[in-house]
Simulated scan of single mutants.
Amino acid sequence: MSNTEKIGDSRMIETNQPDMHEKLVDIVHKHIAHPSRKPIQAHTQQAFDEINAIVLAFSGEVILDSCCGVGQSTRLLAKQNPDALVIGIDKSAHRINRNVDEVEHDDGQGRVENYHLIRADLNDFYRLVVTANWQISQHYILYPNPWPKAKHVQRRWHGSAVFPQIIAVGQEIILRSNWRLYLEEFQLAASIFSLQGDISAINDAEPLTPFEAKYQASGQQCWQLRIFK
Rank of each mutant, 00 (worst) to 15 (best):
residue 2 S to G: 02
residue 2 S to Y: 04
residue 3 N to Q: 08
residue 7 I to H: 05
residue 8 G to P: 02
residue 9 D to Q: 10
residue 10 S to I: 08
residue 13 I to Q: 00
residue 17 Q to M: 13
residue 19 D to G: 08
residue 21 H to D: 09
residue 29 H to G: 04
residue 33 A to G: 07
residue 35 P to H: 10
residue 37 R to A: 09
residue 38 K to G: 05
residue 39 P to H: 02
residue 41 Q to I: 06
residue 42 A to Y: 04
residue 43 H to N: 11
residue 45 Q to M: 12
residue 46 Q to C: 08
residue 47 A to I: 05
residue 50 E to R: 14
residue 52 N to Q: 14
residue 53 A to Q: 15
residue 53 A to L: 14
residue 54 I to G: 03
residue 57 A to V: 13
residue 58 F to V: 13
residue 58 F to I: 14
residue 60 G to I: 11
residue 60 G to D: 15
residue 61 E to G: 02
residue 64 L to I: 12
residue 70 V to A: 08
residue 71 G to T: 12
residue 72 Q to M: 11
residue 74 T to Q: 05
residue 78 A to E: 03
residue 80 Q to L: 08
residue 85 L to E: 02
residue 87 I to H: 00
residue 90 D to E: 15
residue 94 H to N: 13
residue 96 I to L: 11
residue 97 N to V: 08
residue 97 N to R: 11
residue 99 N to D: 13
residue 100 V to K: 02
residue 102 E to V: 09
residue 104 E to V: 08
residue 104 E to D: 14
residue 114 N to G: 07
residue 115 Y to W: 12
residue 116 H to E: 08
residue 120 A to F: 03
residue 121 D to L: 02
residue 122 L to S: 02
residue 130 V to Y: 02
residue 130 V to A: 04
residue 133 N to A: 15
residue 134 W to G: 00
residue 135 Q to T: 12
residue 136 I to C: 04
residue 136 I to W: 02
residue 143 Y to W: 12
residue 143 Y to A: 03
residue 143 Y to V: 09
residue 144 P to Y: 06
residue 147 W to Q: 01
residue 147 W to P: 01
residue 149 K to L: 14
residue 152 H to N: 15
residue 160 S to H: 05
residue 164 P to C: 07
residue 164 P to N: 05
residue 166 I to T: 12
residue 166 I to M: 14
residue 168 A to M: 10
residue 174 I to C: 08
residue 175 L to Y: 04
residue 177 S to W: 03
residue 178 N to Q: 14
residue 178 N to T: 08
residue 180 R to N: 03
residue 180 R to F: 04
residue 182 Y to S: 00
residue 183 L to F: 08
residue 186 F to M: 14
residue 190 A to C: 12
residue 193 F to G: 00
residue 197 G to F: 01
residue 199 I to W: 01
residue 202 I to P: 02
residue 202 I to A: 03
residue 206 E to M: 10
residue 207 P to V: 08
residue 210 P to Q: 07
residue 211 F to S: 04
residue 211 F to Q: 04
residue 214 K to E: 10
residue 215 Y to A: 11
residue 217 A to S: 13
residue 220 Q to K: 06
residue 221 Q to K: 14
residue 224 Q to G: 04
residue 227 I to F: 05
residue 228 F to A: 09
